[in-house]
Design a protein around this nucleic acid. Structure first.
Lengths: 194, 194
DNA sequence: TAAATGACCAAAAATGAAATTTGGTCAGTT
DNA sequence: AACTGACCAAATTTCATTTTTGGTCATTTA
């Protein structure tokens, strides 16, 4: 066996473990075993468990940022971008169990690191939305409004339809239903005008 | 001291206690002391603590129902009714600390009775909304849509702006800000069409 | 000899037995 | 007959003990 890059071995193992078991239930011992590496070796690359976790969250956040940036097509209408990004986000979610697991952990045990992780996720999305809303207002594409409140509302509606809904209903909403209602509320409004 | 109606004395005391301390932290001993009544007396009117709680929740729910019904003016446009009821609801909220306290309790300790109480509150509101949305669709006032999803969304948006917002922001939104954004999302939509 | 390891340690968390509190009863008082 | 509060069993909290876990480091390995 050649000199394998132990650092990425550890990162891969930890990523899987955090996504599967959450922050708290993932022990350094477990990570070392999944990575087939002595526990001490982890500490030659990462000072603490939190630092290891931080790097993984940072990486996932970066991937999210890439998804957001790719969905954003400069010059195209705000709403085209919004719905393309929404669509990409719905895919991202199913890809990245990590944040779903962290959100569960927050509700069940209230692990502070998990809470911070989800907050950082929300922060990235809010920043992104806020920026593009400001831009949309400047371009006259959307009505003048408080970007903070609108960004917050969009995120909350997204979470409500993708996640909260499932706590009371057996059948999750389909991607199409979610998109349809986003259009209804944010682009068109409920009122019949035609 | 004349023969005071002890039943309502107990109800008054319990209502205050539940709203102030939540379900769990309210002891029957405390209620009896606030009501200036022997503990046993409570049990001549209410079989259990849960039954006492149930009566109070039922009463608050009834008051809510009255608020909803009064805000509903038969024959007037759906959106006029929606915003009048929203306004009344915002007043109702500040009146009724009980449900706010219960919601806190659910998040902090997860008391099952508190959870059930908030669920019942949400159920009443969802029923109300669903009914009027169906009606609004029939009258051609609002676009055809899934009443369940739209009712759920309205409620969630309401909670997001009145309650969730305060977890991350120091300044609560004003009644005016909340109403304004409700109009923005549900009646008009974000897109600039003028 | 530089990198990797796992036995080892202190601190944090899980456990469970003992102590306290609380919902509910009922014999006795008013 | 209505009301009370001492009383009881069950549930909850407390806290000392045990177990687990994050992190270290002397030893081993290549």
């Amino acid at each position: 066996m050649a000199a394998i890059d132990r650092r990425s071995l550890i990162l891969k193992a930890a990523t899987q473990a955090f996504a599967q078991f959450g922050y708290k239930a993932t022990t350094m011992d477990l990570v070392s075993k999944i990575a087939n590496v002595g526990k001490g070796t982890i500490y030659t690359f990462f000072k603490t468990k939190e630092e290891l976790f931080d790097e993984i969250v940072r990486k996932a956040l970066h991937e999210l940022q890439v998804v957001l940036d790719e969905g954003m097509h400069e010059g195209e209408p705000f709403f085209d971008n919004l719905f393309r990004v929404l669509s990409a986000l719905l895919e991202f979610r199913s890809d990245h169990e990590l944040f779903i697991k962290l959100q569960q952990e927050v509700q069940h045990i209230g692990t502070s690191q998990a809470l911070e992780g989800t907050h950082r996720l929300e922060g990235v999305v809010l920043d992104y939305l806020r920026g593009h809303i400001v831009n949309g207002i400047e371009k006259g594409e959307i009505k003048p409004c408080d970007p903070d409140i609108v960004a917050y509302t969009i995120l909350k509606l997204y979470i409500a339809l993708t996640s909260d809904w499932n706590k009371f209903h057996k059948e999750p909403l389909t991607k199409e239903q979610i998109q349809q209602h986003f259009i209804l509320f944010f682009a068109e409004g409920l009122r019949y005008s035609g």
